[in-house]
Write a protein that binds this DNA or RNA. Structure first.
Length: 585
RNA sequence: GGUGCUGUAGUUCAGUUGGUUAGAAUAUCGGCCUGUCACGCCGGAGGUCGCGAGUUCGAGUCUCGUCGGCACCGCCA
């Protein structure tokens, strides 16, 4: 045995014991006649002490060690002369009797400390060293614990974890697929699953009733801080359920996770329709940690025309920033610049301050009477000291999204987006379809297997764009952590939905024939949802990016800079696959 | 496909209007130090200023191109 104890477990009560420890050298402090070494492993840090008077040769050997050397030491646990309250093991140290260097180490390119001196790029290249840092390791420990608790909860609820294949076929709609060439079937390709969607529905047809899987999914799209090309879903499906059953089941799972992992008692989750989310927050994933809801101001400003920008607008909406009337001209100009950034795209911003005497002073004073401005104040529920920010525009949804960005920015500036505070809700009643300018047709907003709300089914014939779906998202702090729907289990209805999406019966048969065929053999009513595990963990860890809760993540360009993936293929491999590379440009 | 920020010592960064030998901190190496725990003190070494071209008497600094990184828009059912 290399060790009898870990570096995190010894306490004062262990004084006198002979122990063997193994770990990495965190830091060496040479005092002349004495040398102290902090020995680190996964479990903590234990101080080793060497004394010139006790054992000069051993002390000399200790002085020759370097950072990240791998050591085994045998010694006695002793009480310290001067204790360190900052360490759990700070009351003891190991008086070393025997020192074995299991492996020397070259100096790492950055310091293995919580406050490291390494940048993102470098730490990614040496990810195996980055993972030695406690703060990074904690994220993976949290991830393990969450995945474990998910399994515990779902197992207790009678769910079966079933594995589904990774080599599947390409599906239309949705994201771009990652593809894998088939050597045995030249010219043909597998696709990696964007999610096990169809397979889990087939498991329902098979009668599995309650399925889940913690599973990798793959989407070949451009990346963001919260998007990786391969990511992990907690994928779930249930039979003989209605939307209400699923919301309750998984609200329960979230409550379990919050309780066990964070010690938080999650209240009953509010539910907001998609239409309200857009109306009051300009987003289908509103950050409800703070209020600052949109107030629509069309009635007020159109009743007293004057400002041509407002007069011609199809949408005028405002938010009230409490206590921000003190904002300087410079700060307001900066906010205007913010909303005018190309990524946000507003033309301008109107502001109004509520003065101490209750009067309203705005950037559009010359167009509106104080009476109109007082109506504005009343509508915004604004008080003395508040700042009202208003955006207007031709396109209602676009302007709402711009106002959403402004709201989030104000929330950030006012410190209302505390990562330690959690606000969860369900967003329900999503539209079935959204119009795609690019394809000039309706696209499924969730996916093509989502069931319409029964009362909206007649609208499929008359006004498909207004049909609402039995689809729902769980949103935490403005992050979509999960989403799902009740599925169509009727082959006829499914055919109709495919038709609206623009598939010919032949295309539908080719792409989804096996699913519709399966439904003919008795499909139970079913539905489910999937959580993004990476996002869920990063929320619990208070991270800005999901990368730090993934052991070996990829960068912006989808590269693994440690492995050097993706890379070129050996010509022999290409030949076996009967592939020729023909790069454009 | 697009926008913005960014690239200087192993690392994190500073570097003025274009002007002498490019600095700091930290890491590293050497010396001193018997209770440190971000130990302290003294000293040393360490640079193709991402790469390429241009402007200029002179470029880390200005211009153009290019490559990498980060954030975002498009995209991501």
């Amino acid at each position: 045995m290399y060790r009898t104890v870990t570096c995190g477990e010894l306490r004062l009560a262990d004084a006198g014991k002979s122990v063997t420890l193994a770990g990495w050298v965190q830091r060496i402090r040479k005092m002349g006649g004495m040398t102290f070494i902090d020995l680190r492993d996964r479990y903590g840090i234990t101080q080793l002490s060497f004394n010139q008077e006790t054992d000069a040769a051993l002390c000399d050997a200790a002085n020759k060690l370097g950072r990240e050397f791998v050591l085994q030491v045998k010694g006695v646990v002793v009480e310290r002369y001067s204790k360190n309250a900052a360490l759990p093991t700070g009351e003891i140290e190991i008086e070393v009797k025997e020192l074995n260097v299991l492996n020397p180490a070259v100096t790492p390119p950055f310091t293995i400390e919580d406050e490291t001196d390494g940048g993102d790029d470098l730490r990614m290249k040496y990810r195996y060293l980055d993972l030695r840092r406690t703060c990074v390791r904690k994220n993976l420990e949290l991830r393990h614990k969450m995945a474990f608790e998910v399994r515990r909860y779902l197992d207790e609820q009678g769910f079966l974890e079933v594995e589904t294949p990774v080599l599947v076929n390409s599906t239309p709609e949705g994201a771009r697929d990652f593809v894998v060439p088939s050597r045995m079937n030249p010219g043909q390709f597998y696709a990696l699953p964007q999610s096990p969607q169809i397979l889990k529905q087939l498991l329902m047809v098979s009668g599995f009733d309650r399925y889940f899987q913690i599973v990798k999914c793959f989407r070949d799209e451009d990346l963001r801080a919260d998007r990786q090309p391969e990511f992990t879903q907690i994928d779930c499906e249930m039979s003989f359920v209605e939307q209400e059953d699923i919301l309750n089941m998984f609200e329960g799972m979230s409550r379990h996770l919050f309780k066990v992992i964070k010690g938080i008692d999650l209240p009953k989750l509010p539910r907001m329709t998609w239409a309200d989310a857009m109306k009051y927050y300009g987003s289908d994933k509103p950050d409800t940690r703070f209020d600052m809801r949109f107030v629509e101001l069309m009635d007020i400003f159109h009743a007293a025309p004057g400002f041509t920008v407002f007069d011609s607008a199809n949408y005028i909406g405002g938010i009230c920033a409490k206590g921000c009337a003190t904002y300087t001209r410079k700060q307001l100009d900066a906010l205007t610049e913010f909303v005018k950034k190309p990524q946000i795209g507003a033309k301008g911003m109107v502001y109004a301050r509520v003065e101490a005497d209750g009067s309203v002073k705005s950037s559009v004073d010359k167009f509106y009477s104080q009476e109109v401005l007082q109506q504005l104040k009343a509508a915004m529920n604004a008080e003395a000291g508040d700042l009202i920010l208003i955006l207007s525009g031709e396109d209602i949804m676009k302007t709402r999204k711009q106002l959403c960005e402004l709201r989030l920015e104000m929330g950030r500036q006012l410190g209302l987006r505390d990562p330690q505070k959690y606000s969860c809700l369900w967003v329900i009643d999503f539209p079935m379809y959204e119009w795609s300018d690019e394809e000039q047709r309706l696209m499924a907003m969730h996916h093509p297997f989502t069931s319409p709300k029964p009362e909206d089914i007649p609208l499929l014939d008359t006004d498909p764009a207004s049909v609402r779906a039995n689809a729902y998202d769980m949103v935490i702090n403005g992050v979509e952590v999960g989403g799902g729907s009740i599925r169509i289990h009727d082959a006829k209805l499914q055919e109709k939905v495919f038709e609206i999406l623009g598939f010919t019966p032949e295309q539908a048969q080719t792409k989804f024939g096996f699913l519709m065929n399966a439904f003919k053999y008795g499909a139970p009513p079913h539905g489910g949802l999937a959580y993004g595990l990476d996002r869920f963990v990063s929320l619990f860890a208070g991270l800005d990016s999901i990368r730090d809760c993934i052991a070996f993540p990829k960068n912006n360009q989808g590269r693994d800079v440690m492995l050097g993936a993706p890379g070129l293929l050996d010509p022999v491999q290409l030949d076996e696959l009967q592939l020729k590379v023909d790069l454009k440009g």
